[in-house]
Nucleic acid binder design. Sequence first.
DNA 1: CAACAGTTTAGAATAATTATAATGTATAAT
DNA 2: ATTATACATTATAATTATTCTAAACTGTTG
Lengths: 142, 142
Amino acid sequence: MPKNCNFVDKLREIGLRPTKQRVKLCELLFLREKTFHFTINDLVKKISDEMNEKISLATVYNTVHAFQKKGYLKEIAINSDKTYYDTNTSIHHHFYDEETHELIDCNQNDIDSINLKKNIPGKKIKSVEVLIKVASDNQNQN
Amino acid sequence: MPKNCNFVDKLREIGLRPTKQRVKLCELLFLREKTFHFTINDLVKKISDEMNEKISLATVYNTVHAFQKKGYLKEIAINSDKTYYDTNTSIHHHFYDEETHELIDCNQNDIDSINLKKNIPGKKIKSVEVLIKVASDNQNQN
DNA sequence: CAACAGTTTAGAATAATTATAATGTATAAT
DNA sequence: ATTATACATTATAATTATTCTAAACTGTTG
């Protein structure tokens, strides 16, 4: 979702009704310089803390799913009980800090291209993404 | 956990009491040629279907966590509400079939070595693992 | 403005996982 | 061998993330 844009029109364009809640969430999610990694709970907290608003939990779930479906949010695979999302929807990689549970983007050009020598017969490759787990030191590997 | 081994002794060696349930689970998990990917529910089902036994759900959770802690099982990161485990505890990669939800191992030597150009200051890299999503065709990327 | 379809909402329902507390069992010391 | 003890198992309750539901609400279209 482009920054500095009229979210009302933008939402209409992509076939979602521009409700108050959706516009608020757009502002929270897409008016940012850096890509943003979050869980549903992070969002709910930010809405009440930073925007002094209240959007029902169900709506946050609905809206995040709608944006994901339209391709403006991406679900990130990490070992967690919660689901993480990213405003960077391109195919890219992540550092995952095992101590702070923070995600940091690692773009395609931060990694030499990955060359697969194996494939699955009858299947096409949809994405190849790397998860780099980091920790300060004497941490166990998983 | 080595194949063809006396699980009673092995469990004692690694500091876990060799209870009936743990030995049964060892047999189910580690007496295999290929690496085994599973969820807790897969295990519970296999115990009753293939072994005609009943081990309580809590014990399955406890035991899987104990084995994981001791380094004999590895948690796999994929987008799922369930947690996946792998008997292959080495650092390695996975194909994830978006249609069948099946995991397939992809060893380190099936991929040219990954060269990171970026790092996180003050943090050590603990693992670098690749998830390759596959599907038969006209499937969306995520 | 009226009518309709799409949205929001609170709260119920579900599903995975973890905690609890009573009972059972492997083990080390007697 | 027996017993005491610490560790395990179990059924069940509790918790947490997520999804469903049905009623109230709101953009949009005519």
